[in-house]
Amino acid sequence: MNHANKLFIKHTSCFFAVVVFLLSCSPTRIVKPLAKGEKAVGANLGGPLITFAGAPIPIPYTSAFYARGLNNKTTAFGSVHLTALAFGVFQTDLGICRELYANQKLQLGISVNPAMQIAIDHWEGKAKFWPQLDLNVYKNWGPKKMLYAGINNWFEPSTQRAHNEAQNKQWYVNPHIGFLYSPRKWSYGIETKWVAPGVSNTPNVVDYIGINQKGAVGVYFQLIRRF
């Protein structure tokens, strides 16, 4: 592809790029379930990396969430996607974090986060629902530090898309890895996620930093306060 074509696509591709990454403008909400009755509120900032003025920076997408420990193994959470709201779209993800396995001796655990993404736009009142499932493995180092990794999955329930054409892909896999530091009631997290690794980022999204020209690497900062 020649330079002229790249430039042509570079501008118009913003149309697509924002769409792709609006869907994934948040890190994993809860990796390790809260204690029964414990509550948490959190906010995150970050998104896919782009090259800006020659340096890689994350797009500052934001969302906020609330979580509550239903019991020691299950935490419910809900969120508001503030960036989507800026587009006139109310988007929330409602779900739970469920502990599947925990080894106190090794300070190791596995959790799963089934959630439903719900989005409704202000403009035409159109709604979209799609399930999401995160699978996380975490390892604590003492009470303050936690490293985790996992797979974030989106599922497209519709078999049809615009103009009654077939929706051929129903499952998107986004791997992530993160670190959470919790000195007291506050937790500070950073997560990186390979967003939409099955989607080519060239030449559509030439400004985005992906792996093997696929998807985009996202970086997210998270702040959580537990009560």
Binding site: F15, V18, L22, W123, W154, E156, Y172, A196
Partner: peptide, 10 residues
């Protein structure tokens, strides 16, 4: 762009 059958109005 999204991979999902999202409404354009979003």
């Amino acid at each position: 762009g999204s991979g999902l059958a999202l409404p354009a109005s979003f």
